[in-house]
Computed example of a mutant assay.
Amino acid sequence: MEGGGATLSEVYQSARKLLLKTRDGVERLERLDYSASSDLSFSLSNDISQIQSLCVQMDRFWRSIAAKSQRDLWKRKVEQIAEEADSLKQSLDKYNIKNQKRITEAKERADLLGRANGNSSHVLRIFDEEAQAMQSIRNSKQELQNSTALGETILSSIHGQRERLKSAHRKALDVLNTVGMSNSVLRVIERRNRVDQRIKYAGMLLTVIFLCAFVMWRR
């Protein structure tokens, strides 16, 4: 249940703390003014991506647990964390969509007012900057998701290589055990051959003595 210097329990606790922090952040975000929410929205997006990455890590951990009861327990815990992270991500996405819609509508109203009185350039500049900030957040979020996917692929590859190394190690041990057993069998055969040779020579000697005694008796 260990990997990368942290146990499954430690990774789970880190994910739970980050989940609680993110949940509070989403609730606070919905109370903020739209113009002051860009930085918080970007931070929450990062936190959710980190939680999802921890879930991937925990998913590999619980699958390696030998006891089925413990494995099932951790599976439910990890799935619960993943489901809550998905729910927070959906809430954040809805908020960002609503925020973008509000900015677009405000820009359209300002444009209409500008055509009416020719004095809305400052308002338009404000909303242009806000729209650019939201677009930057979406781009950064996409880059984070791509980086997370790449990290998951690399971790899965490393995990597969470790399993192949374990399999090769077991095969090597089997070969060594087989060689050790073969050496033992050869030593037993060699001892048996030496005993057979001694019996053969002793039989030949007894036969010669018997023949000599018989000849002498016939005389």
Results as ranks from 00 to 15, higher is better:
58 M>V: 02
93 D>C: 05
149 A>F: 07
45 S>F: 03
28 R>C: 10
151 G>L: 08
161 Q>D: 09
123 V>Q: 03
84 E>F: 08
68 K>S: 06
54 L>A: 06
44 L>Y: 09
3 G>C: 01
195 V>E: 12
76 R>K: 09
29 L>D: 06
77 K>S: 02
29 L>M: 02
2 E>K: 14
50 Q>A: 06
216 M>Y: 10
98 K>T: 05
185 V>W: 12
160 G>C: 03
75 K>F: 05
100 Q>A: 03
81 I>W: 01
11 V>K: 03
201 Y>I: 08
209 I>V: 11
17 K>D: 13
156 S>R: 10
3 G>T: 06
10 E>H: 05
92 L>Y: 02
118 G>S: 13
165 L>I: 11
173 L>K: 04
194 R>H: 08
183 N>I: 10
213 A>P: 00
195 V>L: 11
48 I>R: 00
160 G>Q: 14
140 S>I: 10
7 T>V: 05
208 V>E: 05
75 K>Y: 04
120 S>P: 01
164 R>W: 12
136 S>R: 15
95 Y>R: 01
35 S>N: 05
129 E>L: 13
83 E>F: 02
212 C>G: 06
98 K>I: 02
209 I>W: 07
77 K>P: 02
206 L>Y: 03
3 G>M: 01
158 I>T: 12
54 L>G: 05
66 A>Q: 05
64 S>Q: 13
128 D>H: 09
48 I>L: 00
146 N>E: 10
22 T>L: 02
3 G>I: 04
52 Q>G: 09
139 N>H: 04
67 A>M: 11
200 K>A: 14
22 T>N: 07
207 T>F: 15
8 L>A: 05
66 A>L: 01
40 L>W: 00
